[in-house]
Design a protein around this nucleic acid. Structure first.
Lengths: 223, 223
DNA sequence: GTGCTCAAGACCTCCGACGTATCAGGTCAT
DNA sequence: ATGACCTGATACGTCGGAGGTCTTGAGCAC
């Protein structure tokens, strides 16, 4: 195994074992390189790799720190990965979202706060009946994120966030605007919100399923 | 933005735009560095980072290639990330698995081949009634992987593979062996297999839910 | 045709130097 | 005494060059 890969494993080990805790500062590059028995250049490759996936946070002029290691932060790196997938695998991602989103919406029905409900309602009202496409996309993303956050599971939230990432979503919406999809989306959003207000998990789950399935169906007919 | 980060974005752009396709070979380090306008050292940091998340495949003495970009390959990197989470977030990961695994098992009930069914059955038979712990862990992992693969969704498969990674699984099983968990697990595995043989998605879903929930319950009472 | 040898090509590692950003502490004017 | 400003130390950022190691494939002997 290459020395850089060894260094990655060793740093990972230091964090997993608890020798380095979230927020801790690493020794400076020259010292750490000496400790691990490799050159500063090779160590930097290891640090850069761990920095890309949000394990480490490098600040020039200051030092290198272990991030909070929150699921939200680490899974954020997944959206980077999702960007690499071509259209032919989008359906598979959407199928997973079709499983997760209804479950998350059902969970949210039991936990969402009145305040959050009002915020979602205000957001929908502000949008109007015939919003510009860009506003609809942004709103759609925000609407679902708000609900999923109320599920109380940050892993689930981050995962869905990655799956529904801006790139994928934008690509889907791009051609979806010519039909009655806009009105339909708004209608379904209101139905989901109503189910949440009723604290009705099964209704919320069903409407979320319908909502994702409609996107899936359209996409399947188009590709 | 640092030159290395720029290089990461540029390489990503070349792949996403289609200028570089899966399996393509990149120009040699010195040429690519010159093209992108940075030093070879800095470029290597970018390549190493993309290599960690399985975007690039570097072969010493040969060259650097774009990987197949299969969902399976890219999401494999997620297990690396999951390893960093401490026990207190394991429950959240398990909750997500509790959503995905029953759905995947139900999907598999409709698509799994007779051959695959026989293989799963043979695997269970070979294990016997009181297997060693290590064999049980390996078998458990293999059993679920085999089923999920039959769901036909490689994204779903890779995701569950990451969530149920060796580390998490081993940590859970470590203390689970003293009780009646072994016999219970084997019984549930056989029930899942029976439901698959019957091509009964709802029974398969239910047994999978029970199976994951029992682990979750045990873990919740222990932590 | 088969197997071996060897040289070219590409990545691997290291070193040393200099640039740049951050932070802490001191200086000076108010 | 207080505040802004300056300056030095510190740590990361970037670079160029020099060997080392591994893979590959051409060429040669059998």
């Amino acid at each position: 195994m290459a020395v850089t890969d060894e260094a990655i494993e060793k740093i990972k080990g230091m964090i997993v074992s608890g020798a380095l805790r979230p927020g801790d500062r690493l020794p400076k590059e020259s010292e750490l390189a000496a400790d691990l028995g490799l050159s500063r250049n090779s160590l930097r490759e290891a640090v850069r790799a761990l920095s890309l996936i949000r394990i480490l946070d490098v600040r020039q002029g200051d030092g290198t720190y272990v991030t909070s290691l929150d699921p939200q932060l680490l899974l954020e790196a997944m959206s980077f990965v999702v960007d690499f997938h071509r259209d032919d695998t989008v359906l598979e991602f959407l199928a997973v979202r079709r499983i997760l989103e209804p479950a998350a919406t059902a969970m949210a029905a039991l936990r969402i706060s009145e305040q959050q409900l009002d915020a979602l309602g205000a957001q929908l009202d502000k949008l109007g009946d015939t919003p510009p496409v860009e506003d609809l996309v942004a709103c759609d993303l925000e609407f679902h994120r708000g609900i999923v956050q109320s599920s109380g599971n940050s892993v689930l939230c981050s995962l869905l966030d990655g799956l529904s990432g801006p790139t994928t979503r934008a690509r889907i919406w791009r051609g979806l605007t010519q039909e009655d999809a806009v009105a339909r989306t708004l209608r379904e959003h209101r139905a989901i919100l109503a189910a949440l207000r009723d604290r009705d998990p099964e209704a919320a789950r069903s409407w979320a399923t319908v909502h994702v399935a409609s996107v899936e169906q359209w996409l399947r007919s188009t590709l």
